[in-house]
Design a binder for these strands. Structure first.
Lengths: 242, 242
DNA sequence: ATGGATGATTGACCCAGATCAAGGTTGCCC
DNA sequence: GGGCAACCTTGATCTGGGTCAATCATCCAT
């Protein structure tokens, strides 16, 4: 989800490295925010916010990956989104988060006090416009994921996940054929609505089929991209409307 | 999803019955839109827009229910949302829809030409603000649904669905104990990521358990709300943060 | 009323993926 | 390096929900 931005999108003009905020920032606007800005880091595995917690801060991910998830009473957990650099935690107009936010890797957040930030969103049309666009993009991504969760087979889920990782890695700068799974098997399972055993088995199958090769448990290369895309169950265009 | 608004929320001040647009409308702003406004109706079952279609209009539902869904090549279909009165079809900043939009019941749409509408969204902060809020609400609802699709059992899915219908019906005005399923068994199946047989079986089970009673295939009353809520698998508060 | 279409229910059976269980890897700390 | 803890893989078995198929109900149109 939300594989929309990453650090590269940061604006170099000011210390807030987010295009969402900086796109058309001027010194005056920034000054307001600067006053309440702070950075925090979380270690991998730590919970950043619990579902229902009141948010004192509005933050955005600077470095690392966080997850949004919900756990049912009996422990079943479903991840509902990944937060990558430049994604926000918190939403204007709401004091609480509806999901648990957890650091998947070590995470650095850049945070602002909620009130002044919300005021800024109110006052700056381009900012609220930007938040709206981000929300709509996330909404599309979430719906796309609903199709995966509701209708895809285990193999298709795994293929879609791998393909997503690969697509995200393939940026103009480096076409490194080596990719890294940012999640543990358990996290992948919770992301795809599967168990770790099924995740493990399906990865082994794709390995046996010669589609991917693992150098260690996290790093892999794609041997047959066409076969991978074919296994996703999506249309040829990969689910993206041209 | 998006059980957020209904006709009652309409603003009586102008013919565009949507609070999103009308909340702080003045005659001047409205005049712009009025010029390009038109109404269309679709019969139950008709497709309103196909995935990928270029949207000439930006529309909102006035009457009836429409669905957003995606169908995989081999026919597996997943519904990703329901559009109720006052929900929008189309999104500012995008020319196409990512999902098929289908009339579930007979549907009346109120539509505007896309260009002028988008300009209006750009120009009126309160409107873009409103669209942002709607997008964020839908996003929460979509994520909630992801938990259902990824982790809930058939019984829990059915219970959650029924409970949602009941919650939506329970408005201040009338606490009628009789409710109506707005969807066919097949549509319910596609909404919940199940087959029609499983939907039918689970409904029969809940009937047998004395939780609900059907008068015909669409109308029912709840005999044991507590048991129903218990069967959803959600926390006691019904998934809504207080 | 009759025939036919559409939609819903119910039963019998099957299989993908969950569950249970036993090792295997990797990495870290003493 | 040895021991321990996470994490991952693989096998055996079970089961929830899918698949296939038959029957029933409801609603029209003739």
């Amino acid at each position: 989800m939300t594989f929309v931005f990453n650090e590269r999108d940061g604006c170099g003009k000011c210390p807030i490295r987010h295009r969402a905020i900086c796109a058309r920032c001027d010194d005056e606007e920034m000054e307001l925010l600067e006053k309440t800005k702070s950075y925090v880091t979380f270690e991998a595995g730590q919970t950043i916010v619990w579902r229902g917690d009141t948010l004192k801060y509005f933050s955005s991910v600077v470095l690392g990956i966080a997850s949004l998830s919900r756990t049912l009473e009996d422990g079943r957990t479903q991840m509902v989104g990944l937060l990558l650099p430049s994604d926000f935690i918190g939403r204007p107009g709401r004091e609480t988060v509806d999901f648990d936010v957890t650091a998947v890797t070590d995470v650095t957040l850049c945070r602002f006090e909620r009130k002044p930030f919300e005021r800024l969103v109110e006052d700056l049309p381009h900012l609220s416009h930007r938040v709206m666009e981000m929300a709509l993009d996330e909404l599309s991504a979430a719906r796309e994921w609903m199709v995966l969760l509701g209708r895809k087979t285990a193999r298709e889920k795994i293929a879609t996940f791998i393909e997503m990782i690969v697509r995200r890695d393939t940026v103009p700068t480096h076409d490194a054929p080596r990719h890294v799974l940012p999640l543990t098997r358990e996290e992948i399972a919770n992301f795809l609505g599967l168990t770790i055993e099924t995740v493990s088995r399906q990865l082994s199958l794709m390995k046996k089929d010669g589609i991917i090769t693992f150098s260690d448990r996290r790093s892999f290369v794609i041997n047959d991209l066409a076969a991978l895309q074919d296994a996703t169950g999506d249309d040829a265009d990969g689910g993206v409307i041209i």
